[in-house]
Design a binder for these strands. Sequence first.
DNA 1: TTGAAAGCGCTAACAG
DNA 2: CTGTTAGCGCTTTCAA
Lengths: 332, 332
Amino acid sequence: MDFLPRVKMADVAREAGVSVATVSKVVNGRYGVAQATVDRVQQVIDTLGYEASLGAQSLRSHRTNVLGILVAEFEPFSTELLKGASAAVASTGYELLAYSGGGRGADVGWERRNLSRLSGTLIDGAILVTPTVVETNHGVPVVAVDPHTGPTGMPTVDSDNLAGAVLATEYLLGLGHRSIAFLGGRADLESARLREEGFRRAMASAGVAVDEDLVRVGGYARDAARTPAHEILDRPDRPTAVFAANDLSALGVMDVARDLGLDVPGDVSVIGFDNVPESALASPPLTTVAQPLQEMGAAALRMLVQVIDGTLDEPHLRLPTTLVERATCRPL
Amino acid sequence: MDFLPRVKMADVAREAGVSVATVSKVVNGRYGVAQATVDRVQQVIDTLGYEASLGAQSLRSHRTNVLGILVAEFEPFSTELLKGASAAVASTGYELLAYSGGGRGADVGWERRNLSRLSGTLIDGAILVTPTVVETNHGVPVVAVDPHTGPTGMPTVDSDNLAGAVLATEYLLGLGHRSIAFLGGRADLESARLREEGFRRAMASAGVAVDEDLVRVGGYARDAARTPAHEILDRPDRPTAVFAANDLSALGVMDVARDLGLDVPGDVSVIGFDNVPESALASPPLTTVAQPLQEMGAAALRMLVQVIDGTLDEPHLRLPTTLVERATCRPL
DNA sequence: TTGAAAGCGCTAACAG
DNA sequence: CTGTTAGCGCTTTCAA
């Protein structure tokens, strides 16, 4: 199976009987080309179906009209942001390029690697989704969404993790729960830290002591949550509720509960965080704290355009979180 | 706000006291470089944080180890495929680049345009999501997912639209519905055609006549579905059920029903097609026919790798559809 | 109004 | 083992 070679500018030039320089001017709408020539070249472009190579074009011009959104992986969280960014890009005249480093996003610093590969050429700016390392100067306009280390010098958008965690905890408390486990994310993540802090604050406000044995680390991943979930649920003095610091680990908790023959919410209530679409698909549907993910993606895109235009005024945007009641929590 | 210039190969070369050619060899692991030199160059690369420019690299080498997935827009359907492709790419050593032409994907032939921009350079192959035009030779290895014109010369993956539509219709029939409206997609789309055919076949098998006045075109978009939905629902002899040819238009039907003060499923049952996550988030949650979207994305990616390796045996993959009962249909 | 020529950052012969 | 050289496809002075 072999392929037709790509139509390149030289092909158009030859066919139209002009130089590549002239074709380039026509393609880019530069002045100083006779109308007759423009028409003829355009005609050839259309029949041949020529389209400039993004690689070559950007290598030379350093302006591509393409915005990048760099993710570790395309999973529910990042794809929600992508939907929002995609909706917002429509009115800007930019195109969107989403890049994931082959699922090897686990390593710290993946965002710097991918950014280096694309910036300077290819993209005019980038949205970094949950970057692990914060460097203020990446050599290209950048805005970070939900950075692992919290807002810093670079423009960021995130949601109110602290208030959301308080919301979730107070909800459980209001339902009559007192023995509540907290399954956190990684300690080095700002969002994880804030969610745990919110949990502790709400508990303290209610005068309920936190059982440190019921505070575990789940790592934000469905599978990684299994072991700590087991430790929490497989014991005589099992808690009546679990607050998992993100939806994926909440789903992991539900997996373990099922394995243990425990009913959710009959035997144990579970609440998550994020409100990724998958949480609604779980059975029973997961009660959770929603981050407005699509809005966050759209906001990040708008901010990026402002950074590029040099018109960004407010470098940190924090969106509110809300409680979404579904079916995994019950009153005691 | 100004930015540090990108670190380029020449910087590494200067710092390490070698030529760029040597750096290139080190970066690409070519033989014929003294171990001491390799170490020294690598050291400089690490401290400077050098990463090859994808644009420049691919322009020259015509091999990038990057696979493209081209979509009209990042919406629920394409992002589900993206999740599947992302999961499948992890084991291949490739990286994934998703490209959307700035939301202007509405125009016919967007996929050719975007493909031309990326192929030849940048990507080694591409997955085309719901391409509008089918050309067998795109100048680069390609596999199409759910092409608008049905399987052709190029490798494709789709789902069994016909059987799925039969499933949905029989389900409604089994619930006792006889007056069933069909809100189709665009007539020029293969999937839309097959879904309508499935509807008609199932109706015929059951000996129920299709009321042609209740067969409308919804265009697969939530907003576009409103007008035809109105025409279907706002009439004295309103049907008892609506089969919308995709979830988004089913959601549009539900919007209109709500506006009309109609209860779903009390006054009218609704069933969709696709099972995008959004369907579960609707209230009430939408009963629909599921396409295994993530599997389709994963399968497309595996097929693409096979096309590149020249080991593709079966060029058309059709995955099964299944009924997902939720809360928008009730027995009569 | 047009084209020749230089060069973006990189790789791939080929010499040395 | 290392460096020189010649482009990849395009844009951009600058002359003609």
